[in-house]
């Protein structure tokens, strides 16, 4: 069994490295379409990490929403703006140094917060085999108000999209 655990560990670190590399690709590659594909790959990698930590529902939703929907819309936009997709653009300018400093500060703060937070591991959470039921119950009981508010926001977005897309009446 040790061999399998070791293999899983190596696989997880390889996955993390892959995600980081693809994330670097998103900001470093000069072709917008390549960047978008790298973003998709990074998102799929993150879904794989979720899967590794037994959060399979989250992984599926990650792929469905981010890779399936958001990425498709992004690539659609890139392809519609033809002169953007063909060109190679430089991805940095004179503000790169301050930006780097700002990001470094942000990363430090986040890392500090993560390290200081106690992450309680309960026996109940470990024993749960399906993550779906718990999420469903939580959405319908404790978090029912935010859930409904989000649905109102989505309805508003839908209606807005319809109004924008609707053809103007010539008269």
């Amino acid at each position: 069994m040790e061999i399998l655990t070791l293999a899983a560990k190596i696989g997880a670190y390889a996955l993390m490295t892959g995600v980081l590399l693809f994330a670097l690709g998103v900001v470093a590659l000069r072709n917008l379409f390549h960047s978008a594909l790298c973003l998709a790959a990074a998102l799929i990698g993150i879904a794989g990490l979720y899967l590794f930590f037994r959060a399979d529902f989250l992984a599926a939703v990650q792929i469905l929403l981010y890779v399936g929907a958001v990425m498709t819309v992004i690539i659609f936009a890139i392809m519609l703006t033809e002169h953007l997709s063909g060109k190679t653009t430089i991805q940095h300018n004179r503000q790169s140094l301050p930006a780097f400093l700002g990001i470094a500060a942000l990363v430090t703060v986040i890392a500090k917060v993560i390290l200081q937070t106690p992450w309680p591991v309960t026996q109940k959470a470990l024993g749960a085999h399906t993550s779906v039921e718990g999420i469903g119950t939580a959405l319908m009981t404790v978090y029912v108000f935010p859930f409904e508010v989000i649905s109102v926001v989505l309805i508003a977005a839908l209606i807005g999209a319809v109004i924008i897309a609707k053809r103007e009446n010539p008269s």
Binding site: D56, V61, L64, A69
Partner: peptide, 22 residues
């Protein structure tokens, strides 16, 4: 026998647009 089987299927089949785009 994934306990999210159908969601997995929906998620996976939503990826198929990306290779077509590529």
């Amino acid at each position: 026998n994934l306990n999210i089987g159908i969601l997995y299927f929906v998620a996976i089949s939503s990826i198929t647009t990306i290779p077509i785009f590529m």
